[in-house]
Design a protein around this nucleic acid. Sequence first.
RNA 1: GGCGCGGUAGCCAAGUGGUAAGGCCGAGGUCUGCAAAACCUCUAUGCGUCGGUUCGAUUCCGACCCGCGCCUCCA
Length: 483
Amino acid sequence: MPIRLHDSLTRELRELTPAHPDGIFRFYNCGPTVYAPAHIGNFRTFVVNDVLRRLLELEFGADKVKHVRNLTDVDDKTIRRAREEGRPLGDVTRQWTEKFHADCAALNCLPPHAEPRATDPQFLKEQVNMIEVLMERGNAYRAPDGSVYFKVSSFDNYGRLSRVKERELQPGSALKAAAADADEKEDGSDFALWKAWKSDDGSNKWTGPRGAAPGRPGWHIECSAMSKAILGETIDLHTGGVDLLFPHHENEIAQSECCNGVQFSRHWYHSEHLLVDGKKMSKSLGNLYTLDDLKAKGFSAMAVRYALLMGHPRKQLNFTLDSLHAAESAIGKLKALADKLILAAQKTEADFYDSTTILRRNPDPISDFSPLGLDALKDDLNFPAALGALFTDRKALDLGGKSVLAKAEFHSLAKTVFVLGLDLHRTIATNAPPAITALAEKRWAAKLAKDYAGADASRKELTAAGWAMLDGKDGYKLEPLKK
RNA sequence: GGCGCGGUAGCCAAGUGGUAAGGCCGAGGUCUGCAAAACCUCUAUGCGUCGGUUCGAUUCCGACCCGCGCCUCCA
């Protein structure tokens, strides 16, 4: 079964295939702006893309997928943050890049094969080159202040992706948008390719395209330039959150196709927004969560990943603390299933997560056993259906001592779990404070001494402090109390 | 106003022209110093409302109601 994915341009499911003769599937995923910690809405998109990338590797081979995700390290927000903190721009973006990488690792997202930065001299040059070509071709013009704008009217296909021509701009927003640089632009819908230096930009300025003032690249051009530099003029897939559909991706198409004269991306995919408590996350509503916020509430990063997989990626997903509890419990059950299969198949935990075996190309009748849930993933990334298949299988599972069946089931689960990127054995964060740990030790000692009254007293204290102590055979586990 | 998505059990959420996956929660049970965990069993005559098409609709069509998102900062 081929991988089929919704295409935002044609609005239908289309098979994903590599176009290049080398068989390498090239895909570009718009990355974060590094000026603050990413929130879980951002991570929904990155997790969706991570599953997609894993699925592609399973389908085409680990060495046949090239996944690029950029880092926007210069824009109004990064510059403002640096100015407010009185630090060099590079320091600020480096700090938040590191944080982003740490969060991605915690969420078990594979690093992309390339992660270009907008201010990297190599790519800055690429951006300037593209702008110069666009100016030469009459698709861009220099504004009075030395900025360069893309002339939207010069590209007939403008608006095909977002159907912007069918939209009627709300008077209010159109006016607001036009206000900022109305004097510079020839037309309200034109967008900046190069922004001339202003005093607010401080020391952050670079040599611009010929004829333009020193300044910095506009936001949209970085993706066009870096995609071209790393993946080539035509790529197989370009992805991002729905909010990037317009204007960002529309503008990328315009720039790239006017500059290169060929199709920019063969396929477009957009994942929907994550809602929190039924609303889009925003600082003003106070419903914006970062990974650290949720960790502080005692949830594991893996539960967050699972919760992000609970809805279809092209539908808005309502995220709540309750759904995190549900995720944490569900992971526990899958872990128990994995442990059971590891035992039955006489394998180890390391075998279960061995991606080399999972992605091995040579056919193997056992490990090629059709993994449950995989078809659902290949059918437009239907996460809930895939998870459902896993649990349905879990119920039907009757190993009955048959090791062949156990091995097939083991490989099946390992494959699907790999694609979903769930590290089942990395769950509850037991970062209990020292006082809690000491109390738990005290109770454990009392229990071993059969001082049950003392043990119960300590349990009461732990409960009061919000911690559950789960006794095992040879030790205990501390978990934050559920609700 | 324009464009788009959605309304399925207490919550989250798949899905199909032929009579509703799965997870959480809850209830009961097995087990167990206690408490959990784990495991087993149960939980929508119903899929926003009203019409239409059909032998049959939650699934197709129409109208309406409600929610959410986007409309040039935004994953």
